[in-house]
Simulated scan of single mutants.
Amino acid sequence: MATIKLERGTKGANMFRKFKVFIDDDCVGKIKRGERLEFSVPEGTHKIYCKIDWEQSNTLTVNAPAEGVDLLVNSKGASESSFRSLIPVDGRDKYLVLIQR
Rank of each mutant, 00 (worst) to 15 (best):
Ser85Leu: 08
Lys76Ile: 15
Ser85Val: 09
Gly68Val: 12
Asp24His: 07
Leu60His: 05
Asp26Trp: 01
Met15Cys: 09
Arg92Pro: 03
Ala78His: 06
Phe16Gly: 11
Thr59Leu: 00
Ala64Cys: 10
Asp24Cys: 08
Asp26Val: 14
Arg36Pro: 00
Trp54Tyr: 12
Asn74Cys: 08
Lys18Ala: 13
Asn58Gln: 07
Leu37Gln: 06
Gln56His: 03
Ser75Tyr: 05
Asn14Tyr: 12
Lys30Val: 15
Lys76Val: 15
Thr10Trp: 00
Arg84Lys: 10
Arg8Ala: 11
Arg84Tyr: 13
Asp90Tyr: 12
Val62Glu: 04
Gly12Met: 07
Met15Gly: 14
Asp25Trp: 07
Ser85Ala: 12
Val73Asn: 04
Gly12Pro: 05
Phe83Cys: 04
Arg36Ser: 15
Tyr49Pro: 01
Gly68Arg: 03
Lys94Ser: 12
Thr61Asn: 01
Val69Arg: 00
Arg33Cys: 10
Asn58His: 08
Ile4Thr: 10
Glu38Pro: 00
Asp53Met: 07
Arg92Ile: 15
Pro65Ile: 11
Ala66Lys: 13
Phe39Met: 02
Trp54Arg: 08
Asn63Asp: 15
Val28Gly: 00
Leu86His: 04
Ala64Ser: 08
Ile48Phe: 07
Arg33Tyr: 03
Lys94Ile: 13
Leu98Ser: 09
Val28Leu: 00
Phe83Arg: 02
Tyr95His: 06
Asn14Lys: 03
Lys94Val: 14
Ile4Asp: 02
Glu55Met: 09
Asp93Tyr: 06
Cys27Ala: 12
Glu55Trp: 08
Arg101Ala: 13
Met15Trp: 07
Arg92Phe: 14
Pro65Leu: 08
Lys47Phe: 13
Lys47Ala: 15
Ile23Ala: 12
Phe16Tyr: 05
Gly44Ser: 10
Arg101Glu: 13
Leu86Ser: 07
Lys94Met: 09
Leu71Arg: 02
Val21Gly: 06
Ala64Asn: 01
Ala66Tyr: 11
Arg36Trp: 05
Ser40Leu: 04
Tyr49Ser: 04
Gly29Arg: 01
Arg33Thr: 14
Val21Cys: 08
Glu7Asn: 12
Ala64Gln: 01
Lys51Asp: 13
Ile48Gln: 03
Ala66Thr: 15
Ile23Lys: 07
Phe16Glu: 04
Asp24Asn: 14
Ala66His: 11
Ser82Lys: 04
Arg36Asn: 11
Trp54Met: 10
Arg36Val: 15
Lys47Trp: 06
Thr59Gln: 01
Gly29Glu: 02
Ala2Val: 09
Ile23Gly: 10
Lys32Asp: 10
Phe39Ile: 11
Leu72Ala: 01
Phe22Pro: 04
Gly68Pro: 05
Ile31Gln: 01
Ile87Asn: 05
Asn63Trp: 09
Asp24Gly: 09
Asp93Leu: 06
Gly77Thr: 14
Phe19Asn: 07
Asp24Ala: 10
Pro42Tyr: 12
